[in-house]
Simulated assay, not measured.
Amino acid sequence: MSSINVTTTYPTGGTLLPNAFVDYYMIKANGEYVKVYIYLLRMVSNGQKFNIPCLADLLELTERDICRALKYWKKENLLDLVMDGGEIRSIKLLPVSTALTIDADDLKEPEKEEPAPAPELKKEVPVAAPSVKAIPALRTLTPSQLAQKNKDDKFSYLIYIAEMYIGRPLTANDLNTLSYFYDDLAMSPELIEHLVDYCVSNGKKNFRYMQSVAIAWYQEGIHTAEEAKLHCQNYQKEYYQIMHAFGLNNQPAPAQIEYMKRWLKTDGFDLSIVIEACNRTIRSIGQPKFQYTDSILKKWKDNHVVSLDDVKKLESRPGTVAKPGTPQINNQFHNFEERDYDFDELEKQLFEKQIHPVKED
């Protein structure tokens, strides 16, 4: 990748941030975008060149983050990009408008509005409330709001704990997400500390991953660290037993987790039913194929199977499973060979052909 030249038509006087940028653009922008813009100012003051991978390594961001930041500042009319063949060839920094100002009232904490009185509704037939808990939206706090949050001793402690676990200072995005756990999801400091510990222990230091886990706990109604520990133990225990039934000792892949979650949660199968389907998969095709197990469980679900006894009753129904040794009838009305089809065996053969297609000569 070729180097990118950064130029400007106005004197920078060193790495100097105009007041209009601080008062208007910086407050609205993502913290990582601000880092990119400030470093562009630093390079243009010395006439340096750069490329996207090097800048990403230097600022500890991804290349995609750098490109998003450049496109954002282009949209804000603070720079212009010269493209060639889909690649950025040069960047021109544009003057920051001094006409933009921000009122002091904009830096104050937003006042809580009194809820408007609910309008009177006509009596209607009550509708059942949805079972899925609504997820609060993630808010982006202003620098003054984040500074106010730091005055909270419990929140300051969470920042310290999080930085200790992930081994680096938190970015503005990280602080927003941490505040989301604390305020919007109403998670206790103890639960948030366990959340960070749990994610880091699983090799996940990304706050986006932590956010997905936090939302899952929120929907499960988990409020304490003890409840979270119990949930994780049960969660891991059930999945481990299914993986063990398949003869697998590795951590389940996301696609495999989706299967197991649907079997146990959405479809509501008992763990013993799922393990029986896994055992039948191994006996039938000799491989731990989640798709094959899913076809077995789908068949059982369609037949309202909820226990192992139901499985036996289903198989005992006439015509469900072909019985070996069925006598052949040969008379004047039967001049052809009758066949009893074992549909489970046919399904197995079809599945194997899909996995190992026969090569034509």
Rank of each mutant, 00 (worst) to 15 (best):
P11T: 00
P11I: 06
P11F: 09
G14A: 09
G14T: 01
T15E: 04
L16P: 00
L16K: 01
L17T: 07
L17P: 01
P18H: 13
P18Q: 13
N19T: 11
F21C: 00
V22C: 10
V22Y: 12
V22A: 06
V22M: 06
V22T: 04
V22L: 15
V22P: 02
Y24Q: 07
Y25Q: 01
Y25I: 00
M26Q: 11
M26L: 15
I27S: 02
A29Y: 13
E32S: 11
E32L: 13
Y33Q: 07
Y33G: 00
V34D: 06
V34A: 01
K35P: 00
K35D: 15
V36R: 08
V36C: 08
Y37H: 11
Y37R: 06
Y37L: 14
Y37E: 01
Y37N: 02
Y37A: 03
I38T: 08
I38F: 07
Y39A: 00
Y39E: 11
L40N: 05
L41M: 12
L41G: 05
R42I: 05
M43Y: 10
M43R: 05
M43W: 14
V44I: 02
S45F: 14
K49Y: 14
K49V: 12
N51R: 07
I52W: 09
I52L: 13
P53V: 09
L55T: 04
D57T: 01
L59S: 04
L59A: 03
L59P: 04
L61S: 01
L61G: 03
L61P: 00
T62S: 15
T62M: 01
T62R: 08
T62Y: 09
E63S: 03
E63P: 02
D65Y: 06
I66H: 03
C67P: 08
C67A: 04
R68T: 03
R68K: 05
A69Y: 12
L70V: 04
L70M: 12
K71H: 10
K71Y: 06
Y72F: 11
Y72A: 06
Y72L: 03
Y72M: 08
W73A: 07
W73H: 07
W73K: 04
K74G: 02
K75F: 08
K75W: 04
K75R: 12
N77R: 13
L78E: 05
L79G: 05
L79K: 07
L79W: 10
D80F: 14
L81C: 05
M83N: 05
D84N: 12
D84K: 12
D84I: 07
D84E: 15
G85E: 08
G85K: 07
G85W: 12
G85M: 05
G85F: 14
G86Q: 10
G86R: 03
G86D: 09
I88S: 10
I88N: 03
R89E: 14
R89I: 09
R89W: 07
R89V: 13
R89G: 06
I91E: 08
I91F: 10
K92L: 11
L93N: 09
L94A: 09
L94Q: 07
P95L: 10
V96L: 02
V96P: 01
V96Y: 13
S97N: 10
S97M: 02
T98L: 14
T98S: 15
